[in-house]
Amino acid sequence: MTAKVGVVRFPGTNCEFDTVEAIEALGGAGEVLWHGDAALGDVDAVVIPGGFAHGDYLRPGAIARFSPIMTAVIDAANSGMPVVGICNGFQVLTEAGLLPGALQKNAGLKFLNDWQILRVESTNSVLTSAASTGDELNVPINHFEGNYTCSPETLAELQANEQIVLTYVGNPNGSIADIAGVCNEGRNVVGLMPHPERASNALLGSTDGNVLLQSILDSVTVPA
């Protein structure tokens, strides 16, 4: 059976179809889920993709976290389903309290749209299990509010539990401890600012994002 990944679409989301295409190119099944629906259907994993959900009004993710589907996403995450937030999706997951910390305006106040080298810090998460620690991945970033911040106590916990799964080589946005991606304590919820779906085909300039998307598919326990 094929792993089925639900990709949530809010008003203002703009990476849902790229994400579905990248997942399907790897042999998974992708389905766009509407934010206004209350149920996830029969998906095995959830991706909250990039974009500007609800216009990013108030704060990125602040309104999206109250969309009806988020109750189901939070329940699924708490029962162990893989849930990954990419870029705006990362912001939604921190606002929803599924991931620690918050994402602030970039240091320097520039919208960043560039290729970025990421370093895999931990392979113990649903987003990095197919990679090797120390791998360097070339994956694009595209954000204004990607400056990860948290309290010193939270940072100490993230480090002690090895919840920092991806860091930037050459910090582009001021993120504390060069953090590009973190997971929850259960390691089934991961958020990252870079866009693996935009590094999923040689035509796009890199295929380094595929190892991350493949990890999501691998993490799904599909009955034989």
Partner: peptide
């Protein structure tokens, strides 16, 4: 204690 990129730029 939380960094304020906008304040710093101003």
């Amino acid at each position: 204690g939380i960094a304020d990129p906008q304040g710093s730029t101003i």
